[in-house]
Structures are given as structure tokens and as C-alpha cells.
């Protein structure tokens, strides 16, 4: 049992990945009340773009980490401005169907452009190495995944709670008409939020590439986990997403070690338990 710290690290690394994927999703849901089914597809686009940038164009992982979120930001802004805003009046069903259809279209486009087989995204240099912790060899990249998540979460919290922009954002959510009257361009704010959320998914895609596999099924694979995170954490709650990701990461890691037969079911059991005890999620607001 001397290897328990390693399992804790595994849990942290996976929690980091989960948070990166679900942060954009929860932001968009929390701010705009849109359940974005195309989120995971955007994440896949991020991963494939990083393949093109790293393996075909520049060879630089850092370059992909900077460029991909920008491209996804633009895509997100366009999707909000020209698609989402038009169906907004029809309520949630329209938005749901739109993003659902978008997910399929994006997946097919990815297959058409990049091909229907797995691609390799390799990191080189410092990030590809391993270090020894607690007497165990541990890959630096896994630690990097966790710290990227901490960084992203930190920046999001700072913007939301410590800046003027954050005040405007929260005001737009609470009472968009009043905020509009006060001279804030609320539609622009929403476009920004959606674009930023999409950029986050792109960032997560770049991070996931060298950790997981870049293939056309990667979106579906992560979508369910991301939804579990935002359901458990409470729809739209950033703090909730942090706690839920950490919880699920550890549950997954120690579940495999201690009760392997049940490990797959554990996170769904957690979700069911949370839904029964507190249907709005751990940090969700009671409606």
C-alpha cells in the first residue's frame, strides 16, 4: 500500500483534465443557460488543430496551446452570433437541438478533413520526461495537466469575482434587461462568454492530445464525463465543477485499486446519490 500517493496523483491528473473540459461547459451553462452539446466536439477540434500545428507545421506544443484557443474563440463567437442567437427566442429546446446537430456536423467535418483514424500528438523535451516522486516514476505531463487546470480555474475565478468585467458578467446573468438599460451591450457579453467557453474547450483539447488519443470518437468519450461533472457540481457553478472534478478523479483512481469490479459504475452512483440528496448539485442554487 506504499503506492497510495501515486493513486492520489492519478486522481489529481484526471481531475485536471475533467475540469479543463467541463469548465467551458459550466461557464456557458451558468452564464447563458445553454446546455452546449457541441462542447465536446469543439474540444475535439482543438485536439485535431493541435495535431496540425504541432506535428505538421511548427513542432511546438506551446504554439498550439496559444493558437488553438484563439481559433476556437473565433469559431465560438461566430456560432453564437449567427446560429445560437437566432434560435434563442425559441427557448431551450431550440438551443439543445442546434448544438446537438452542430456536434454531428463538426464530427463529420473532422473525419472528412483529418481522416477516420487515430493521430499521434507527441510532446517533446521537458514535458515528455518523468520524475521520481515517493519512489515512483511519474510522468511530468500528468502533473502539467493538473497545474494547467489550476491555472485556468484560477484565472476564471479572478475574472469573475475580482474584476469589473466579472461584475458586468454576473450582472448580465442576474438581470439582463436592467444591465442593458445601464448601457452594457448584453448580447455582446453573451457572445464573449460563449466564445470564451469554446476557447476553453479548445485549450482542453490541446492538453488532452498527448495524454489521450486524437481520434474521431474522442468527443463522445469525454462528453459523458463532462456532463457528470457539471451535474454533480451543480449546473453552472465554477466552484462546484472544481470539487466535482476532484471527487470524480479520486473516485476513479481509488475505485480501480480498491473495488475494480465496480469502478466504472462509481461515478454514476455518485451522480445518482447527489441527484437524490440535492438535485441541484453540490454547489447548485436551489431553484
Amino acid at each position: 500500500m506504499s503506492d497510495i500517493p501515486v493513486f492520489f496523483l492519478h486522481g489529481l491528473a484526471y481531475a485536471g483534465l475533467l475540469f479543463l473540459v467541463s469548465s467551458g461547459l459550466t461557464l456557458i451553462f451558468g452564464m447563458m443557460n445553454v446546455l452546449n452539446f457541441a462542447h465536446a466536439a469543439m474540444y475535439m477540434v482543438g485536439a485535431y488543430l493541435s495535431y496540425t500545428i504541432i506535428m505538421q507545421l511548427t513542432g511546438q506544443f506551446w504554439m498550439a496551446l496559444m493558437i488553438c484557443p484563439v481559433i476556437l474563440f473565433i469559431i465560438g463567437a461566430l456560432v453564437e452570433r449567427f446560429l445560437l442567437r437566432r434560435v434563442h427566442a425559441q427557448g431551450h429546446l431550440g438551443e439543445l437541438l442546434l448544438t446537438f446537430g452542430l456536434a454531428y456536423i463538426i464530427t463529420e467535418l473532422v473525419k472528412w478533413y483529418w481522416g477516420n483514424y487515430p493521430l499521434a500528438v507527441n510532446v517533446t523535451g521537458f514535458l515528455s520526461g518523468s520524475i521520481t516522486i515517493f519512489g515512483f516514476i511519474y510522468p511530468i505531463y500528468r502533473i502539467f495537466v493538473f497545474f494547467s487546470a489550476v491555472l485556468v480555474g484560477g484565472i476564471m475565478a479572478l475574472i469573475l469575482y475580482k474584476t469589473r468585467l466579472g461584475i458586468i458578467l454576473r450582472a448580465s446573468v442576474n438581470d439582463s434587461e436592467m444591465t442593458n438599460t445601464l448601457g452594457v451591450n448584453v448580447p455582446l457579453v453573451f457572445m464573449g462568454v460563449f466564445a470564451f467557453g469554446t476557447a476553453l474547450s479548445g485549450f482542453a483539447g490541446v492538453i488532452a492530445g498527448p495524454f489521450l488519443s486524437t481520434f474521431p470518437g474522442m468527443a463522445q468519450e469525454i462528453l459523458i464525463d463532462a456532463f457528470v461533472v457539471i451535474v454533480v457540481g451543480g449546473f453552472g457553478s465554477l466552484g462546484g465543477a472544481v470539487v466535482a472534478a476532484l471527487l470524480i478523479g479520486q473516485l476513479q483512481s481509488f475505485g480501480v485499486l480498491l473495488i475494480p469490479k465496480l469502478s466504472v459504475a462509481l461515478i454514476y452512483l455518485l451522480m445518482a446519490a447527489v441527484l437524490i440528496i440535492k438535485p441541484s448539485g453540490l454547489f447548485g442554487e436551489e431553484s
Binding site: 503506492d3 501515486v6 493513486f7 496523483l9 492519478h10 491528473a13 484526471y14 483534465l17 515512483f136 500528468r142 489521450l212 468519450e221 469525454i222 464525463d225 476513479q252 483512481s253 481509488f254 480501480v256 485499486l257
Partner: peptide, 8 residues
């Protein structure tokens, strides 16, 4: 997705 716990 995460083989870490198995590999350990």
C-alpha cells in the same frame, strides 16, 4: 481513458 491506476 486513464490507464494510470491500472499501470500503477
Amino acid at each position: 481513458k486513464d490507464y494510470g491506476p491500472y499501470v500503477s
